[in-house]
Simulated assay, not measured.
Amino acid sequence: MEALNNPLFGLTISFLAYEIGKYLFKKTNFPLFNPLLVGAALVIGFLYYFSIPLEYYSKGGDIIEFFLIPGTVLLAVPLYKQLNLLKKYYVAILVGGLVGSLTTITSTIILSKLLGLDKILLVSFIPKSITTPIGIEVSKSLGGIPPITIFSIVLTGICGNIFAVGICKMFKVRHPVAKGVAIGISSHAGGTTKAMEMGEVEGAMSALSIVIAGVITLILSAIIKNFIGLI
């Protein structure tokens, strides 16, 4: 039990699970074997099967969470390399970010109402398309449940990573800036990793869109907060 109480326990099983996910994905190239999805499933299954309390895992898992913010900041590097494109398309990027954020929030509210979800679950899902550190704060400000928000953010990122390429092809989105903005706005860092595989421009625009989506959602959440009683 002493070994489980060590932060290295959570770190070790997280890295091992992720590496197994990477290996499976490389061997099969099957979208559902996304390393994040496989890793999360393995960690959950391991903790459940051996009846290990979440508190033991969190000692190491929280360390990984701590590095989410500086990890997100590093996405500014490819953006810096594409400053000329940012200056050229800044109007389209900002408008795309605003429309995308509004669409995400509106669709979440409509679907939650159609499915009859409780209000507390509804507001927990609203920040699902923005990066985790900002999403947690938005969830708290709206009276949501942060762990559910984190789950929805991770799931959204995984879906973006898996389906981004197919959806761009389906809707014939060919411009690299448009691809990057669409992926970053809808699926934050999880989708951005796929955007970076698609190309440097796509990755840079997706990284920028994470910031835009976060800022816009923060602003909109302040407005939504005043109308929560009507939702």
Rank of each mutant, 00 (worst) to 15 (best):
V201M: 08
K179E: 00
P146M: 03
I162M: 03
L54S: 10
G96N: 07
D62H: 13
I224Y: 07
V165F: 15
I224R: 03
G60P: 02
T193G: 15
I44A: 09
T28M: 04
F50W: 08
Y56H: 15
L47G: 02
V165C: 05
L208I: 09
A76Q: 11
E197N: 12
L75N: 03
A92K: 13
S58D: 14
R174P: 08
V138A: 07
I134N: 07
Y57A: 00
L24W: 06
I210W: 07
L85C: 09
R174H: 13
T12R: 13
I224S: 04
F125K: 05
L142G: 04
A189F: 04
A178N: 03
S152P: 06
A222F: 15
P176Y: 00
K140E: 12
F151Y: 11
I120G: 09
Q82T: 07
I212K: 12
I130Y: 05
I13P: 03
V211I: 14
G190S: 04
A178W: 01
I134F: 14
L117A: 10
F66Q: 15
F125D: 02
A204V: 02
K81R: 14
G184L: 00
P78D: 09
A76R: 12
Y89C: 09
G39P: 01
K119Q: 15
V73E: 11
S221A: 15
I158H: 00
L111K: 08
L79E: 02
G97D: 02
E19I: 05
T217N: 15
A213F: 12
V91M: 11
V91E: 12
V173E: 01
V95C: 05
Y49M: 14
G191F: 01
G144K: 05
A213I: 08
K22G: 06
K87L: 11
L230R: 08
T106G: 05
F163P: 01
S107D: 06
F46Y: 13
K22Y: 09
N29G: 04
E55G: 04
L230C: 04
G157E: 00
G191T: 02
T193I: 07
K169N: 14
L74M: 12
M196N: 11
T131Y: 04
R174E: 15
I153S: 00
D62S: 14
F50D: 05
L102R: 07
L117W: 14
C168H: 03
I110L: 14
I145F: 15
I223R: 05
Y89T: 06
I212H: 10
V173F: 01
G135K: 08
E197M: 07
L37T: 04
L94E: 06
S141P: 08
I148G: 00
T192W: 00
A40Y: 10
L230H: 11
E55I: 05
I64D: 04
L220K: 06
L98H: 08
S139F: 03
T108L: 11
E137R: 14
I210V: 10
I130C: 04
T132R: 07
A164N: 00
T193D: 15
I150R: 02
P127G: 01
